[in-house]
């Protein structure tokens, strides 16, 4: 019989790392998604190509491969990242690519006549995006962003393989020290699920907050 309290606190420390990775990864993904998503609908062909290349590259390979590449290959190019930086970068860029397609889809799904109306009332391109297109596109993006955030949370498990001390890594440590397999893995499965639930709740709250007053409009 081991020191279960100690092992639990080890796993909870890991949970903190997982939560940190998720939050910071999501923040990076959000920024990247808007840059690349807006880039995809830019009027300059060069920017469109650049955004497409980025999106196809990061969607074409898995988070695992990207993480290993960032962690093992970049040091030879003179860029050495801490495991947590590599983790956040790979997660954010990977999920950002998926979310960029969501941004693009939502912006394109705003009806054409909205654009025409903006031209008719002489709004600048920036005003058109800021006041007309974006507020209508945002509610369409949110549910899928929620799914993307959960994908990112699930992706964080992979960082344990570059020896970052997240929840999965700590569960392996507990397994190695106690020889018990069921308890650590069942615990982290439940914890991951609770985090995923919390994420989807949070997104739903943001959704009701943003769509307030839009009933009957859409």
């Amino acid at each position: 019989m081991g020191d279960w309290g100690g092992y639990l606190s080890l796993i909870l420390q890991g949970a903190l790392v997982t939560a940190k990775l998720t939050v910071m990864g999501c923040a990076l993904a959000l920024v990247v998604a808007f840059i690349a998503g807006l880039g995809r609908v830019s009027r300059f062909a060069a920017i469109r190509w650049l955004a497409t290349a980025y999106i196809e590259f990061f969607r074409g390979t898995s988070i695992f491969v990207q993480l290993f590449w960032v962690y093992f290959v970049l040091p030879f190019a003179g860029v050495t990242l801490e495991p947590i930086q590599a983790g956040i970068m790979a997660l954010g860029l990977n999920v950002g690519a998926y979310a960029a397609e969501v941004v693009r889809g939502a912006i394109l799904s705003v009806p054409r006549d909205q654009y025409e109306a903006c031209i008719a009332v002489n709004l600048t391109r920036f005003q058109r995006m800021r006041h007309v297109i974006f507020p209508q596109a945002l509610p369409l993006m949110l549910p899928t962003f929620g799914n993307n955030a959960i994908e990112l949370l699930k992706g964080t498990a992979v960082v344990s393989l570059i020896s970052l001390h997240d929840m999965t890594f700590q569960a392996q440590v507990v397994r190695a020290q106690t020889g018990s397999t069921l308890i650590p893995f069942a615990t982290i499965l439940v914890l991951y699920f609770l985090m995923a639930l919390a994420l989807s709740r949070a997104i739903r709250m943001i959704e009701t907050r943003i769509t307030r007053g839009l009933d009957g409009v859409r």
Partner: peptide
């Protein structure tokens, strides 16, 4: 819902390490 909310990697560990017990 549970399977979709948890990482595949952990599920693989579960199958590979827990089931032998």
């Amino acid at each position: 819902e549970f399977i979709r909310g948890t990482p595949l990697l952990v599920q693989l560990y579960f199958i590979f390490y827990v089931l032998p017990d």
